[in-house]
């Protein structure tokens, strides 16, 4: 019993942390989402559900759809790039394994915003990449990379790729190598072995990676702000504009609450799938 109490005590710092830095701000956001603004743009708390009604204006639907579309494209690309990387590191990394994982995480030592600015400098019309393309005579004119949908998705993939690699790496690393050997013993081709053995065994890692990439991608605003053009506006930009541009924190807060509710649906679906998988594993 006392051991359990000790364990409970250990939860205290983390619990307090979450309460102060997650629950309280979340409460403030919800409170602000029902508020209004005074002449100076300050938030006045109150009961103004019309912020939510305004958020459901059909005008904003394309923005949400675009955000979800970009996020799905990001997830697909991250999976395509991330799975082979994770597979290689887990299987063939050998003594370099931890080093390679450290390299995957290394970009996080520099703020995402700053790294995105680096892309702006690299990909500008007369930036380093286009300079190389024209100077080497690959093309006469450079390529317009920036301010396009591709650039926005590229920025998101770059920003969140590690979130895909890490859980998949963990799943492949954890998987019993003997399973693959058993597949081969049963005359499975490499593809069939992958499809019927490795993929199902690592699927929970894939799912976790997809959720971890999808959630921040939908709400991201930095990539669209710096790499996007006039028509790549995402829900994150819309929210950011309410806070920084339009002096309308209550509307921004209402949009935030709606986005969180929308993202929670995906989270719940994932959690249910994960719970089902661990039940099946236990049988």
């Amino acid at each position: 019993m006392s051991e359990q109490r000790f364990a409970t005590t250990l939860l205290l710092p983390g619990g307090l942390w979450l309460l102060l830095l997650f629950a309280v701000p979340l409460g403030l956001v919800l409170a602000a989402s029902l508020g209004s603004t005074d002449d100076l743009g300050n938030t006045v708390y109150g009961w103004h559900p019309e912020n939510y009604r305004q958020a459901f204006d059909p005008l904003f639907l394309p923005v949400l759809l675009r955000s979800v579309g970009f996020a799905f494209a990001t997830v697909a690309l991250c999976l395509l790039i991330g799975y082979p990387v994770a597979y290689y590191i887990a299987r063939y990394g050998g003594r370099w394994k931890h080093m390679l994982i450290a390299l995957v995480v290394l970009p996080f030592f520099v703020n995402y915003l700053v790294r995105t600015y680096a892309w702006v400098a690299l990909l500008a019309d007369e930036g380093l990449v286009n300079g190389a393309i024209t100077n080497l005579g690959i093309r006469d004119t450079g390529i317009t990379f920036l301010n396009t949908s591709f650039a926005v998705v590229g920025g998101l993939v770059y920003g969140y790729l590690a979130f895909m690699i890490l859980p998949i790496y963990a799943a492949i690393d954890r998987m019993d190598q003997a399973l693959v050997e058993a597949g081969k013993d049963l005359y499975g081709t490499p593809w069939n072995t992958f499809r019927h053995v490795t993929w199902p065994a690592t699927f929970q890692g894939v799912l976790a990676g997809c959720v971890l990439v999808f959630l921040p991608s939908v709400g991201d605003f930095i990539s669209a702000q710096l790499l996007g053009g006039p028509s790549t506006y995402m829900i994150g930009n819309l929210i950011q504009q309410q806070f920084l541009g339009a002096d309308n924190w209550p509307f921004g807060a209402a949009l935030t609450a709606i986005l969180m509710a929308f993202l929670s649906i995906w989270m719940v679906l994932y959690l249910r799938s994960a719970a089902r998988a661990s039940r099946e594993a236990a049988l």
């Binding site: 309280v24 602000a32 710096l226």
Partner: peptide, 12 residues
């Protein structure tokens, strides 16, 4: 942008 990120982290 930094402010946006800050707001997201620190609440209102």
């Amino acid at each position: 942008l930094a402010l946006g990120a800050g707001l997201a982290g620190c609440g209102l």
